[in-house]
């Protein structure tokens, strides 16, 4: 497994047992992550970094923050009736004290991991584990 700053070089689960396990685990994950977080099954879960709102619901599937088109009321430029996902992420991250996690540049999405189980990918070390606890820092501003 070769991982660099920009991109994960990985072909995803390929062996039969791994694919079967991924399918079973993904079905389990779907029951929880889809209704609770709006998970889009990208297989490279960023939920812990994005204050537990799935950033892949953004129409542009941005992984690094909002595009320049967020409206004044915080709505999306593509679907004006919806809130911008990243607007909600930033609001909730501030509320939960998890804004430091938004500082890192996320890697380019590996499409080979699409529709695979993110937890399996964590256990097989394809993606970094989630950051569950953050030291709360006093808000400066």
């Amino acid at each position: 497994m070769n991982r660099n700053r920009l991109f994960t070089h990985d072909r995803g689960p390929r062996k039969f047992w791994e694919r079967a396990l991924s399918f079973v685990m993904l079905t389990g994950e779907n029951c929880f992550k889809v209704p609770v977080f709006g998970c889009q099954r990208c297989g490279e879960c960023l939920l812990s970094h994005t204050a537990f709102i799935c950033c892949q619901r953004c129409p542009k599937r941005l992984r690094n923050g909002p595009c320049g088109g967020t409206r004044d009321n915080g709505h999306c430029e593509v679907f004006p009736e919806r809130f911008c996902v990243w607007y909600r992420i930033h609001r909730r991250a501030r509320f939960l004290g998890r804004n430091t996690l938004l500082n890192s540049t996320e890697r380019i999405h590996n499409w080979k991991l699409e529709k695979t189980s993110a937890w399996l990918n964590v256990f097989t070390r394809r993606i970094p584990p989630p950051t569950l606890f953050v030291k709360r820092r006093r808000h400066e501003s």
């Binding site: 690094n64 909002p66 088109g69 967020t70 004044d72 915080g74 990243w86 607007y87 930033h90 804004n99």
Partner: peptide, 10 residues
């Protein structure tokens, strides 16, 4: 565009 924090971060 708002929030300003997100703009500065990006």
């Amino acid at each position: 565009a708002r929030p300003l924090d997100a703009r500065i971060l990006r």
